[in-house]
Computed example of a mutant assay.
Amino acid sequence: MKLDHTAAGVYAIAATPFHPDGRLDTASVDRLTDFYVECGVTGLTILGIMGEAPKLEPEESLAITRQVVKRAGVPIIVGVSAPGFAAMRSLARSAMDLGAAGVMIAPPPSLRTDDQIVGYYAQAVEAIGDDIPFVIQDYPLTLTVVMTPGVIRRIVMDHPSCVMLKHEDWPGLEKISRLRAFQAAGEMKPISILCGNGGLFLDFEMERGADGAMTGYAFPDMLVDVVKLQKAGRRDDAHDLFDAHLPLVRYEQQQGIGLAVRKYVLQKRGAIAHDAQRRPASGLTPAAKAEIDYLLGRVARYDARAKI
């Protein structure tokens, strides 16, 4: 199931479950994988930023990849970003050998010029091999690397193995429109565009030409429904459902505690046994948990899945 430019729908960014003492919770890895699949996701992305990948040992990264690929039955994208290309190559080649569909590569924060960004991806492809389909992660809010539509086009056109953009620019609607205009004019080969940022702009991103979402909001089933409704031309229904969840989506996007919020809700939904993060980690105060519970109650007025 190698990834290609036709990928669409929702690829959930998977959390990584831990026990309170920091050990991997392998039972919850299966439990969470089943949860995502039952929510109707098209695929999964593991070992991303919200998957706490930098906190994992190399052996743990491979163990999680092996476990998820074996269980999921849907395409798996593996985050392989690393400070050096040797580690990136090792994880990428091993993940593909285990049955992954492709890999995701984020630019290091040190990149500043267009040529530096393009050059970095050229070196990354040389390192992992041009037979591995890869995803560009465009996340300037966290990575501080700004990719213009022109830079993305250069990377896409330089590398046939580049099949997807994980679009997380903010604001980024015009970027989607520009990339699709390149494609319509024959100036860029087709690529899949899946959007992140917790789904915060998914309602309009779909209308600008995105193929779906790649994010980790704790209600991936809502994201699946919004994508389906938009593709069916049911614009108002899509926005109504999205709007009901928007206050919780916004709350989950807080810098510093976003992952804690997400894991708290996933635990309440029964997807993981513990909401623990591996240190260094942030936690939720009783006041924050009460606010989340309040928001869940409000969402449940429209969407019964939030009655937890």
Rank of each mutant, 00 (worst) to 15 (best):
A86R: 10
S161H: 05
C162F: 04
E187V: 10
G43Y: 05
D131T: 07
G199D: 03
R112I: 13
I46K: 08
F182K: 02
L91A: 03
L229C: 04
M188R: 01
R71I: 03
V80A: 07
A8Q: 14
Q116D: 04
A122N: 15
P171Y: 04
P140S: 02
L141W: 08
D114F: 07
I46Y: 06
T215L: 12
E57Y: 10
G73L: 10
S192A: 14
Q253S: 13
Q183Y: 07
A12E: 04
A304N: 08
L44A: 09
A106I: 12
A218P: 02
H239S: 14
V68M: 12
K289C: 15
T33R: 00
A100Y: 05
I308K: 00
Y11L: 14
A306Y: 08
V69W: 03
T113K: 06
H19E: 15
A281L: 06
L266T: 01
H167S: 06
D97T: 08
D303R: 11
Q254A: 13
L47R: 00
T16H: 04
F219V: 04
L98Q: 14
F18K: 06
I292D: 02
L194D: 11
D275C: 08
A260T: 07
A306I: 02
A271S: 10
A238W: 03
G258T: 12
A101Y: 09
R153I: 03
R278I: 13
